[in-house]
Every structure is written in C-alpha cells, then in structure tokens.
Design a protein around this nucleic acid. Structure first.
Length: 271
DNA sequence: AAGTGGACCTGCTAGC
DNA sequence: TGCTAGCAGGTCCACT
C-alpha cells in the first residue's frame, strides 16, 4: 500500500492536527518489525512537533527526540478523537491530549522506533542510505544518469533500491518505466542520458499525479487487499497482466525480478 | 563492492 | 465447501 504518495498523504492529514499535542499514554500490541527502543512510559508528557517525511518514513518529533515510523506493506495510520478498543491488527497507539494516533498493520512489517535524534542513534541509520527525494531540485536526469551508470542491476531494481531516488515502490516504479518507455530488465548502466532524463521526469510526474489524487491507493486501503478503487484506473501496466496496452494494444506482460512482480508493455518499453 | 536470496507476518484469491 | 499454493504496496540482513 504505502508508497510515497500514500505516506505523504498520511503525513499531510496528520501533521496539523497532532502538532502541539502532549503525549498521555502509549499502548503496544504485537511486536512490529523493530522494538520501540524505549520505555513506553518515558514518552508521556512529551510535546509533539511537526510531522515530516523522508522517503517512506515518517518522523514525528517529540520533545527530546521523536518517533520514526514506517508503514511497511500493510500499515495505515489514523488519528482520531476517540478510537475503538484495539482490534487484532492495531499494534501501536499514541494517546495524546488531542486524540489518539493508531497504527494498524496486519502484516507487521511496519515499525515505530524511538530516536533521540542524535547522530549516533541506531534508528537514524535507517535513513542514512536513502537517495534523493523525487521532488528535490537536485533530482535531475543528469543525477539519475550518473547514479545508474555505476550499477549493473536491472533499472527497475535500481529504482526500487531507494539509494538513488526514494518513494517509488513496486507500483510506481513499473508505471514510471512505462511512461519513460524503458524495458525494466535493461541494465541500469545501459540507460542513456536522454532516457535517464525521461525517467527522472516520469518518476516525478507519476508520483506527483498520485499525490495530487490524495494517495489513491491509500483511500481504498481497507478494500480487498488494498488495491481497489481509483488507483486501478490510473495504472497503465501494474496489475494488468494480459490486458491490452492502452497505447498499442499489446498484452501487458508480468515477469519476476528479485522475487517481485514487474509489469510492462513489451512493445512500448524497449531495451 | 555489488548483487542475490531469505527473512519477517498475515490475509486474500484462484484453483483443484 | 474446503484445502492449498501463490501472491501482496517494503526493506533489512547475511551471504557469495
């Protein structure tokens, strides 16, 4: 579910409402990907600051540190005045004077980790290898070309790796490569400068469009396994194996790369 | 160093 | 109807 547009949508709706709240309690459910890393009680009485985002991570500043949060594959955050009794998949509640922030995450690949925001904090290591934000002016075709040049892995995997540019997950990586007309299997170092230009453009455009729609995939997250609703209408290749390409009519193909599905049009996307 | 594969965990769907 | 295999939006880590 949560790629950059969904995480950013979550952040934007959360930030203004929770900023200034004071923590009154913490409730933990089943273990998430990593332990919280502090005594939950120690968060009480800290004041919440302005939530920010880095890649697919959310940073919720608290006095003296903050919580680094990730939604994993199946996580979602809700902030409400009153939340119901925790259900089976509700694994983290941050109770505050303005409402309760709740992480619901069936697969528990997500995480909430305390960090003291100091350089040597282990939690911050999670952010240290991340590439540029897609909307950073420094994320240009020239930058992407240079980064791709040093890698021999397939260009799709290079996008997913997150060490060049963050935010494009499996869906948007597939969509961006389609928009740029590039075969996902093409070795990264074989992407020409002009095509890197188009790819950087495509990544930005695809993510911006999804963002403008308010994180399409998030909205209907509760449906089926999360892929219902508006996003399917937007996707040109993702999840469309066997369907005709919207541009040329060729059947969309699905292949496996690094144990993950890649969808592409064998006609529109060339090596 | 770069690349590959396994690991984490639950739920849903398609197919027998 | 019931069981099973396969698949799912992420990414860290150990190994070659």
């Amino acid at each position: 579910m949560p790629e950059l547009p969904e995480v950013e949508t979550t952040r934007a709706s959360l930030a203004p409402r929770i900023a200034g709240a004071v923590v009154t309690g913490v409730r933990l459910g089943k273990p998430l990907r990593w332990p919280l890393g502090c005594d939950p009680e120690s968060l009480v009485d800290r004041t919440v600051g302005e939530a920010t985002r880095r890649g697919k991570y959310l940073w919720l500043p608290l006095t003296g540190g903050g919580l680094l949060m990730h939604l994993g594959m199946s996580g979602s955050l809700a902030f409400r005045d009153a939340v119901p009794e925790p259900a089976a998949h509700d694994h983290f509640d941050l109770l505050t004077t303005r409402g309760t922030l709740r992480l619901t995450d069936p697969r528990r690949f997500g995480a909430v980790v305390w960090s003291n925001a100091l350089d040597q904090d282990p939690a911050l290591k999670l952010l240290s290898g991340l590439g540029l934000e897609p909307f950073d002016p420094a994320f240009t075709g020239a930058y992407l070309h240079d980064a791709l040049k040093r890698r021999r892995i397939a260009v799709k995997l290079a996008l997913l790796s997150g060490d060049m540019v963050v935010g494009a997950g499996n869906i948007y990586a597939c969509e961006a490569l389609f928009a740029a007309g590039i075969d996902p299997r093409l070795p990264a170092n074989k992407v020409s400068r002009p095509r890197a230009e188009r790819l950087a453009d495509a990544v930005r455009t695809i993510l911006a469009r999804a963002l403008a729609l308010g994180g399409t995939t998030l909205r209907d997250f509760k449906d089926t396994h999360g892929m219902a609703g508006a996003f399917q209408d937007q996707a040109k290749v993702y999840g469309r194996e066997g369907d005709p390409c919207t541009v040329c009519g060729t059947a969309i193909r699905r292949i496996t790369q690094a144990a993950r599905s890649t969808f592409f049009c064998p006609t529109c996307q060339r090596r």
